[in-house]
Amino acid sequence: MKLHRIWAVILHYLYTQKRSIPRTMDIFYWPTLNILLWGFLSMFLQKTQQGSTSSIIAIILGALMLWMLFNRAQQDISIHFLEDVWNRNLLNLFVSPLTATEYIFSFIILSVFKVVIVGGVMTGLSLLLYHFNIFSIGIALVPFILNLLFFGWTIGLLIMTLIMRWGTDAQILAFSFAFLLQPFSAVFYPVAVLPKTLQLISYAFPSTYVFEGMRSVIATGEFSQGLMIQAFGANILYVGLAVIVFQHVFKKVLDQGLLTKLE
């Protein structure tokens, strides 16, 4: 991997970002809107159920913030790729010495930048409006965020792979796939409320363990190492699978000349 090539890819998105109102809104608008909506809903719920439910704001806002980070990570891979497809810039990149690994790695670095900004915006707003500090979760926040980022990047890579193989007909997945996972990831409620069969599906995703773990820390102050080990284990499995699928499909894409037809 060559750093100058990774930096070049990052640079071209930074230039695009600085001039694009929709892209800037994407970083500030949705996190702000979600924090306002879910924050006030949490306050309302807390007022109506005073007593044992003092952590409603923490549970809902904490879950929302972590979910937004996962969603950001997934979209940063798949949508940046789509931008090159929409701009018919992909060939320019792939006839250069840039490798697919460098290309994907630059998306991951960009994603980290954006996650920090989005996280900062949401943390500031929730502190200001609801006196909720996500960092009150403590050091457990690190494995929670890491797991969600890895899972987000993995899903993003899989969506990118599908778009490479089946063209822009699959692009809707870049915007909608995370929402498909949301009900099964038990973001705002415990897995126990799901029917038995759905619980099995739910435990297939690393995100489920993170949200269960987060609720446990907020409610009891206890960090479940077991849940995190399962989350990391599932992530390792998914990352491995995504890399194998990507390599296989990318080989097929080059074999069938699909890279030249993407637009």
Partner: peptide, 10 residues
């Protein structure tokens, strides 16, 4: 190639 482009917003 006549058929490839650059990033339009750059």
């Amino acid at each position: 190639s006549a058929y490839i482009q650059f990033m339009s917003q750059l």
